[in-house]
């Protein structure tokens, strides 16, 4: 009989820190160590954490700009083309030319906002890879403390810099009170 193995591949390490200051300074060190696939979870937003983690500006805003511009131009084209070019519609004796524009503004405004909002929602889901039913980190009881009083850092095993021994040593040297290896789902 073959020896049965139930060990799954590792998802990565999670490390618990005592407070916001500790995790903030730890994040700076991890950033400087060159890690790319890692994250910090805290019960509340920590000011300046994005800089400490070395996060670049999200490209969501570009997506929203594109969404808004699409919406605005679509509304302008749809109204102008149909009401002025294709079938000039005279309302209250007002001219059907460039000076009809004010009548189109409410729809332009609304559609700009609508498509911007869609771009926010859609872009966010794509960037965050949502929706998903479960996440390997949720298996850890330690990790769940992040929504209560825990300051948790997670480093994924996918990161090229990841090493079972050295990463653990690094986290412990940074003052983590509790380092835990989390298994992947599969």
């Amino acid at each position: 009989m073959k020896e049965k193995t139930n060990s799954k591949p590792a998802y990565g390490y999670i490390a618990e820190f005592e407070n916001a200051t500790a995790i903030y300074h730890a994040a700076e060190k991890v950033r400087d160590a060159g890690f790319k696939r890692w994250d910090v979870h805290s019960p509340y937003p920590i000011h300046g954490m994005d800089a400490a983690m070395g996060l670049k500006k999200s490209w969501l805003s570009a997506l929203v700009l594109a969404g808004g511009a699409t919406g605005g131009l679509t509304a302008l084209f749809l109204q102008f083309f149909t009401q002025v070019n294709l079938y000039p519609t005279v309302v209250q004796g007002k001219p059907t030319d460039f000076s009809t524009l004010p009548a189109f503004f409410p729809v332009i405004f609304e559609l700009t906002i609508l498509l911007s909002a869609f771009a926010v929602l859609g872009g966010l889901l794509v960037i965050l890879l949502l929706p998903r039913l479960n996440h390997p980190l949720l298996a850890s009881k330690t990790f769940l403390k992040f929504s209560d009083d825990g300051f948790i850092m997670s480093i994924e095993a996918r990161d090229p810099k990841f090493s079972r021994e050295r990463t653990k040593e690094l986290l412990e040297s940074l003052g983590a009170t509790n380092v835990e290896l989390v298994e992947d789902e599969v």
């Binding site: 004010p102 009548a103 503004f105």
Partner: peptide, 12 residues
């Protein structure tokens, strides 16, 4: 500014 203009322009 637009609302004021728009309402007056529309009501005529």
């Amino acid at each position: 500014a637009f609302s004021q203009y728009f309402l007056i322009w529309y009501a005529n």
